[in-house]
């Protein structure tokens, strides 16, 4: 019994495998380097943020949220830019690798943008006195979150993976093109309904040297985290695709036997 399954698997593998095993192994080596490097840097980053960076004279310790918030937010924008580019290339070339990249980047991006919103709220309450304000950047980030949650929903609810890939690519393109328009419309809307809250621009400009260095280090750390998560998710998706191929091959086999 076990033997027949073995041969069937081998058979399915030779016929249905989406990619040969080579690239998966090579990418695993890369991911091991990334996770080791990223882990060490993350520990260093945390110690820099909490021990090395000076306490902000006006804002106090809460200002340290900033070292997480800004890199995470920037990485989420980067993630959606990657989704946009990967979606276009996927629609033109139809190479599944680009679809995997788009999906992985979108999922990591949604996680990052969620974290950016949460850290933003944590920042806003003590500094601005409100949990939330309809400031352009905040509002745009919220809309971004909504668009890419819809992106993931389209992918999940599509009738088959191929359709999901195409539909979500379309949403990835339309959504990204829409973001600058959302941003400008909210800026103009704000300028007409003035808000008592001062934007974050004032604090962002005045960064002492050590602070800027820690922020830069934090950026690099989160960039590595982002690349690692995307690579990991892509590898997982590749395994899923292979498994799907093997399953359907086995089903066909079973049907032909009975």
């Amino acid at each position: 019994m076990a033997e027949t399954r073995q041969t069937e698997l081998a058979h399915a593998d030779s016929r249905e495998s989406v990619t040969p095993l080579g690239p998966v192994r090579r990418s695993r080596d890369l991911r091991v380097y990334l996770v080791v490097l990223g882990g060490v840097m993350m520990l260093a980053d945390l110690s820099f943020i909490f021990w090395v960076a000076p306490t902000d004279s006006i804002l106090g310790d809460i200002q340290r949220v900033f070292y997480f918030h800004v890199p995470i937010a920037v990485m989420s924008f980067l993630a959606f830019f990657v989704v946009f580019v990967a979606s276009i290339v996927y629609l033109v070339t139809r190479s599944p690798a680009w679809d995997r990249l788009a999906q992985a980047s979108a999922e990591v991006g949604v996680v990052f943008v969620t974290l950016a919103l949460i850290t933003g709220v944590i920042w806003a309450r003590p500094i601005w006195g409100v949990w939330w304000t309809w400031e352009p950047r905040l509002t745009t980030t919220l809309i971004l979150w909504l668009i890419y949650v819809a992106y993931l929903m389209v992918r999940a609810y599509a009738a088959n993976p191929n359709q999901g890939a195409r539909y979500s690519a379309v949403v990835g393109i339309v959504g990204f093109v829409d973001v600058p328009i959302v941003y400008y419309s909210v800026i103009w809307w704000r300028s007409i309904h003035p808000s008592p809250v001062v934007g974050p621009l004032a604090q962002a400009n005045a960064l002492e040297g050590t602070m800027a260095a820690v922020l830069l280090f934090s950026f690099i750390t989160f960039l590595i985290l982002f690349v690692f998560l995307v690579a990991q998710r892509m590898a997982l998706r590749e395994t899923e695709d292979r498994l799907g191929g093997i399953k359907s091959a086995m089903r066909r086999r079973a049907e032909s036997v009975f």
Binding site: I143, L146, I147, V149, A150, M153, V154, Y157, A158, A159, Q163, Y167, V171, V174, G175, D178, I181, V182, Y184, S185
Partner: peptide, 19 residues
């Protein structure tokens, strides 16, 4: 073409149409 299409259209439509 997707499952639960009654909800998919507004979920896609409103964020993009916001401007």
């Amino acid at each position: 073409q997707t499952r639960s299409r009654e909800i998919m259209l507004p979920v896609l439509f409103f964020p993009v149409i916001l401007p």
